[in-house]
């Protein structure tokens, strides 16, 4: 079953930055763009599993810190010529609060 779960507020994430959320399915990276849009994808680069949350964000892409693949924040796809995809997580922003759609949430720790 899927559930919308509140994970924090927009101001918790620096502009052009990311924070991580620990979930039962693995770590999710939540990104904030310069225009205050929010995106969430699983925090594993399709190349060799690099932590995408640690990359440099610009526009709607993040550059992986390990070997510089460029990943599209909306789709989780690597941009050509690299190939691969990491799974996006549905995310919404309601009155400054960030919600992720995840498998049945039981509890939310520090927010």
């Amino acid at each position: 079953m899927l559930d919308w779960i509140k994970v924090g507020t927009l101001s918790d994430i620096p502009r052009l930055g990311a924070r991580t959320v620990e979930t039962a399915q693995g770590q999710v990276a939540v990104f904030r763009t310069s225009g205050d849009e929010v995106f969430a994808i699983f925090n594993r680069c399709p190349h060799k599993g690099g932590p995408l949350s640690e990359g440099i964000v610009s526009g709607k892409v993040v550059v992986c810190p390990l070997h510089s693949w460029t990943i599209d924040l909306a789709t989780g796809e690597a941009t050509a010529p690299d190939e691969g995809c990491t799974r996006p997580v549905p995310v919404k922003l309601v009155e400054g609060e960030i919600w992720l759609e995840l498998k049945a949430g039981l509890k939310v720790a520090h927010g």
Partner: peptide, 11 residues
């Protein structure tokens, strides 16, 4: 400090 903590933990 936010750099070194995760935003949330969801079980």
């Amino acid at each position: 400090a936010y750099e070194f903590q995760s935003l949330a933990e969801v079980e």
